[in-house]
Design a protein around this nucleic acid. Sequence first.
DNA 1: TAAAAGCACTTTGCGATACAAAGTTATTAT
DNA 2: ATAATAACTTTGTATCGCAAAGTGCTTTTA
Lengths: 98, 98
Amino acid sequence: MKNYIHNLNKAFENRIRLGLMSVLMVNDSVDFSTMKEMLDITDGNLASHVTALEKEGYIHVKKEFVGKKPLTTYSATKVGMKAFNEHLDALEKLLKGR
Amino acid sequence: MKNYIHNLNKAFENRIRLGLMSVLMVNDSVDFSTMKEMLDITDGNLASHVTALEKEGYIHVKKEFVGKKPLTTYSATKVGMKAFNEHLDALEKLLKGR
DNA sequence: TAAAAGCACTTTGCGATACAAAGTTATTAT
DNA sequence: ATAATAACTTTGTATCGCAAAGTGCTTTTA
């Protein structure tokens, strides 16, 4: 293997998806509004990056009603956690120059 | 501050520029062919990412002749090293969830 | 000496990405 | 009635990423 850059995961190259995922690694679940505020991005932008990660099977989206209000919450899947950890591994090895 | 994702540097978001820069952080200078082989990318692709980092003032490009053959070597500038370290700082803080 | 190869690009073309802004649907609070 | 909340979807545009092909100059090699 030449360099660890090819072990980096395309899905986590974007800063928003990286942030989103890292939030879900330390929080069991986070709802739409909170995530939007944490990442400080527009609602549409959040929605599109969420879709991207969901398509990869990296996060799970749960829609429910709390009272009469809709509530969407996100959580990382096992597959997502594994992929993210592998990405971080590749990152670390790359940056350590090994 | 909501989240450290906004402290990440756009110039280092791409895997090739990240790899290129991390190579130049541990090697004083690296020539075109070696870098191309290390990153395992096409010559045109390397040239374009080099241009991008050079435009930001993050790397220095030196062209000389060794014997009769042209030799292009790259090195990180002080500005580049500072920017890269700040990027890594933001990354670390982001991933540590602080 | 003509053809092939090396070096370091630049140009072309095109699909994929990123993102703001505006539009949508449904409910709820004023 | 009107505005606000929630969670998107759509639209439009600008930028990116990358392979492939083209360029110009020099040096090997057959």
